[in-house]
Design a binder for these strands. Structure first.
Lengths: 232, 232
DNA sequence: GCATTGCTTCGGCCTCGGTCGAAGCATCGG
DNA sequence: CCGATGCTTCGACCGAGGCCGAAGCAATGC
């Protein structure tokens, strides 16, 4: 006669301002150190440590040791999805600029990876373009590739014919872009677009972080393929 | 410089065993009284009252007075969606039989409405049938009506050609069936199927609750249309 | 070696909120 | 009217947990 206690445990882990702030800061897929998370939550490192221990305990985040740093990130896309669901109910959320909003972040905002798909201004622009030409449909609850979109993707060589058929992974889902606050494309399709852009040399990794640089070839190709003009 | 406090508030409302149990009990769309919710949470009416006040305050449930009873239900499908997201993380949840698992509930399990669409064994069977004939696709993250499915729905007279074109409401989404633990069809499409079944006299309301009875005509039609055989 | 940095553990303080008993309002049935 | 029922409010109790200072531990750098 077990009740919904597990659910209460998970929700309680999120239901504390400091921990909620930490999770929100991790929503873009970055891995942050305990100190950084303490800063975004405006608490001391000791307190942050106990909070992080609890978040790890219930499985919302995972930690990776590297030297004397400990990098924390969301445990899975499912966790991000859950937090998005909560945010949907909580209504418009304003976040203060999180962790070093330096010039390097301008690059991050322009284009970056989010797990295995494109994010930032570029990711959102692509999602807009696909939606504008009827290749994908995005509503409040989900996203899907239309039949014409699938054909187009195959013609463009972005989507291999055999991809995503037998996978249990969501094929096409919207992912709220943290900097743009609007959805970009995730799932198998989002990963295929990202892979294609990398393989074709449209974008390349900029540094150790997840920022991407659009190459000259990429500017031309993105304009031709999606009608997108990227800031240089 | 507002932080994610709103999110913490919502999550904290769910993050308490008694309130989580109440919300879980409301997940099938029923409206329960304060006393019933106190019972499922195993607390006294006074305590339940304060919990319910908090859930109403943060907008997770809404209440409707009827005589000396107060019926509480989830505020919106978005709330149900959020709770599903949390449950996904919390892992397998066992619920104790909630509120009168009498013989009348057998009817509820067989067929009922969930908001405006079909649920219970019947709802899940229809979803399975539609999926089997390629009319809809359901994955872990969403559901969609295929082009062939749309044509078929039009031919069957279930879906009017003009429906769901301009609505901002999700057209076709999966909704986890609480008794069956498997998805049935919700959204505009789910409502259209339900409406059609009611108008054609396939099912009719059984009592004051949301249980549905499959008519003799309905047995024949459901077999012919979906290939479904319902228990009598 | 020693100092510094990053993070955790320990201990104590104090507030928040979950709990129930008792009482207070409504509503319904006589 | 009266009593019964459904639910809320009030008041008091008390335990969980969020908080920080101080100390401990591990890794790095000099």
């Amino acid at each position: 006669m077990v009740t919904a206690n597990g659910m209460a445990e998970v929700a309680a882990a999120v239901g504390e301002p400091a921990r909620a702030a930490m999770l929100a800061a991790l929503m873009d897929g970055r891995a942050l150190t305990a100190s950084e998370l303490a800063e975004v939550a405006a608490i001391t490192p000791q307190t942050a440590s106990s909070h992080l221990a609890r978040l790890i305990l219930v499985g919302l985040i995972v930690v990776e040791k590297q030297g004397r740093h400990r990098y924390h990130r969301l445990a899975s896309p499912a966790v991000a999805h859950m937090i998005e669901g909560i945010m949907q109910i909580a209504g418009g959320i304003e976040v203060r600029p999180l962790v070093r909003t330096g010039p390097r972040d301008l690059a991050m905002r322009a284009a970056r990876t989010c797990y295995d798909h494109l994010a930032g201004q570029l990711g959102v622009d692509i999602a807009d373009a696909l939606q504008a030409r009827g290749a994908v449909e995005i509503d409040g609850d989900g996203a899907r590739l239309t039949d014409t979109g699938r054909t187009w993707m195959h013609d463009m060589g972005i989507l291999k014919p055999d991809i995503g058929k037998q996978s249990s992974r969501p094929f096409c889902r919207p992912c709220l872009d943290w900097s743009e606050r609007r959805p970009h494309i995730a799932g198998v399709l989002g990963a295929a677009i990202c892979t294609h852009a990398m393989e074709q040399g449209w974008v390349r990794r900029r540094a150790a972080n997840r920022a991407l640089e659009v190459t000259p070839k990429g500017h031309t190709a993105l304009k031709a393929t999606f009608g997108i003009t990227c800031a240089r």
